[in-house]
Simulated scan of single mutants.
Amino acid sequence: MFELIKKAIKVNTLKLVAIATFFYILCAFIIYAIEPENFKNPFIGLWWVMTTVTTVGFGDYSPETYMGMVFGMFLYFSGIGLIGIILGKIVDSFTLYRRFKEEGKLSYRGENHFVLIGWSKKAQKTLDEILINEDNQSDIVLIDQLDKIPVEHENLYYLYGDPTKRETLEKANVLKSNSVTIFASDNEDEVSADGKSLLIASAIEIYGMEHNKDIYTIVEMVRDSHVKMFNHVKINEFLPSNDTFPFLMAKSMQYHGSSHLFMQLLSKRYGDDLWKIKPHPTWKTYRDAFHSLQEKGANLISANNDLGIIRRLDEAIPKGTNLFIICDKETFHSVQQK
């Protein structure tokens, strides 16, 4: 019996389930053959077998003959042991799945997610900012070569791999992502960090071109002078790694308290925030949008990346335009429902 148990443990889980299913059905027919008057059909026999091996034991059916009792004792030892092995393998499978997820060995199959490439202090702050947003229902896929996932969160998925390789991009389902953001490494010099970002961005562009798909790409640049090196690569946005702080400091020196305004725009932790909306069908011109939003308590500040629309309010709103507004969360939802 112990030798059989040892062999059963080594059997593939699916194969073991198939063997157990056949064994339990066979036992149902055997007990039906032994006591046909007590177990009136094989299904009742199967009911008794399953309540026995799962140790539920309702007692509604039980063997009444010596032969049936002997068979029941056989079932106690063999059937209960078999289902115990199956349950153990199922638990092991969940444990293995969790370990693979932590180590980044599983592919991601979701859509409209954010892909973050490269773990750094700035990547962590960016991740924290996204995760605190209650309105964000999108998942985040982090690609790096860490031993395990750096932060535990239900919306964060980790993928171990080289982001310049096609198989890694496929596992991250980059083609169906919302955007891909490439972060500079904390442990490399400026040239190496930006050079690595250039290589990754090139790999993403080539991968997208192979599938006729434009992948929205955002790159953190350590040195501004390197931006021209990216001219042959399609990058949607460059974000300076070191310049933002001095710019904010200069504004604060010139206009006291202005840093509080920027913090509201940069983070959802503070006051009113920056939101993106689609124009309502009834809005024909920017003036229509401006007045309608004003009545709701929202400030229209930009059409796409153009901050000068306040001087062109009578112009028609082109199709595909995204409007940016400043307001609180409640007002944003009110505008969205309009």
Rank of each mutant, 00 (worst) to 15 (best):
K6H: 13
K10I: 09
N12P: 10
L14C: 15
A18W: 08
T21P: 04
F22D: 10
L26H: 06
E35D: 04
E35L: 00
P36W: 10
E37G: 03
N38Q: 15
P42K: 07
F43E: 03
W48Y: 11
G57P: 01
Y61T: 12
P63W: 04
F71P: 04
M73P: 07
L75A: 11
L75S: 05
Y76H: 13
S78D: 08
S78G: 08
I85M: 01
K89R: 00
K89G: 09
S93T: 12
F94L: 13
E102T: 08
E103H: 06
K105E: 12
L106Y: 01
G110F: 04
H113Y: 05
F114Y: 14
V115R: 05
K122F: 02
Q124N: 14
L127M: 15
I130F: 14
I132N: 03
Q137G: 14
I143N: 02
D147V: 07
K148N: 12
K148F: 09
P150F: 11
P150I: 06
V151C: 06
E152L: 13
E154L: 11
L156T: 10
L156A: 08
Y160M: 04
K165Y: 06
T168C: 09
K171L: 06
V174N: 06
S179P: 01
V180R: 09
D186G: 08
N187I: 07
D189R: 04
L198A: 01
A201G: 04
S202Q: 10
I206M: 15
I206C: 08
G208D: 01
G208W: 01
H211E: 12
Y216H: 14
E220V: 12
H226V: 00
V227Q: 15
K228Y: 07
F230L: 00
K234H: 06
E237L: 14
P240S: 13
S241M: 09
P246C: 07
Q254R: 14
Y255I: 13
G257S: 01
L261V: 15
F262H: 09
M263F: 14
L265S: 02
S267A: 01
G271F: 09
K278G: 05
A289E: 00
N304Y: 08
D306K: 03
I310W: 13
I310G: 13
I310L: 14
A316F: 11
A316C: 07
I326L: 10
D328E: 03
Q336W: 11
Q336G: 14
Q337W: 04
